[in-house]
C-alpha cells in the first residue's frame, strides 16, 4: 500500500546525497534502522561527510562516519529544533529523512515552516506502514492506524482510511464508512502493518 493511483499519494526515494547542496542534514527515525543500515548510510553519504549533520532520533545506535551527530529523544524534539533554529538554514542546504510516514511528514512540515522547499527535502520510507488519519467529521488526528477501517480517536466513528493524502496535515483522509447505512461496517483488514 506504499503505492497508489491517487496522485496525492506521495512517493519516496532511496537516500543519496545531492552533490549540488551546500550543507546536508540527515534525520533518521531510530526504530526504522535495521542492523547495518547506519553503516550503509555512512557509506552513501561519505562524499559529503565534511558538510554533514546527522540527527538520530530515539536510538543509541552508533553514528560513525555520519558527520556531526546529535541524538534527540523523539520527533517532537526534531520539530522544536527546527522551530527554534538559531543557526539559519541556507537556500543551498539539503535535508534527508528516513522513517515511517508520520515521522517523515512531521519533519518535512517543520522544515517547510521555516522555509525549506520540497526540492530540498528527500524522504525515504522505512519501517511500518502505519498511517496518521485525519477525521473529516471531527478533524481529530488518529495515530498509528494499521487497519483499513479505524475507530476515530475523537468521535469514535468507523473511518474508512482512504489513499488521499494531505502534505499539510501529514495525514490520510478518514471518512465514516457506515454513514449511509448505520452499522453496516465491512470487514476490517490489517492493511498498513
Amino acid at each position: 500500500m506504499l503505492h497508489s493511483d491517487i496522485k496525492s499519494r506521495p512517493t519516496y526515494t532511496q537516500l543519496e546525497p545531492d552533490l549540488s547542496g551546500s550543507q546536508h542534514l540527515l534525520i533518521v527515525e531510530g526504530d526504522t534502522v535495521l542492523p547495518g543500515r547506519l553503516d550503509s548510510l555512512a557509506g552513501t553519504f561519505a562524499p559529503v561527510e565534511e558538510n554533514l549533520h546527522t540527527w538520530l532520533v530515539g536510538t543509541q545506535a552508533g553514528g560513525l562516519g555520519l558527520g556531526k551527530v546529535w541524538r534527540l529523544p523523539g520527533v517532537a524534539d526534531v520539530v522544536d529544533a527546527f522551530a527554534c533554529a538559531t543557526r539559519g538554514y541556507g537556500i543551498g542546504d539539503r535535508l534527508y529523512v528516513q522513517g515511517t510516514e508520520p515521522f517523515l511528514w512531521s519533519v518535512a512540515k517543520a522544515a517547510a515552516i521555516i522555509g525549506f522547499s520540497a526540492e530540498q527535502i528527500h524522504l525515504h520510507h522505512a519501517g511500518s506502514l502505519r498511517r496518521r488519519v485525519w477525521c473529516t467529521h471531527c478533524h481529530t488526528v488518529t495515530e498509528d492506524v494499521t487497519t483499513s477501517i479505524a475507530s476515530c480517536a475523537g468521535c469514535h466513528r468507523h473511518l474508512l482510511v482512504r489513499d488521499h493524502f494531505s502534505r499539510r496535515l501529514g495525514a490520510f483522509m478518514g471518512v465514516m464508512v457506515d454513514a449511509e447505512a448505520p452499522g453496516e461496517v465491512p470487514a476490517v483488514e490489517e492493511s498498513f502493518a
Binding site: I6, K7, S8, R9, W134, T136, H139, R162, H164, F165, S166, R167, R168, L169, M173
Partner: peptide, 15 residues
C-alpha cells in the same frame, strides 16, 4: 477544503 487546502492541481484532483 480543510483537507485539500494547500494542495497542487494534481493532488486535489487525485481522487
Amino acid at each position: 477544503l480543510e483537507f485539500d487546502v494547500g494542495m497542487s492541481f494534481m493532488e486535489w484532483h487525485g481522487p
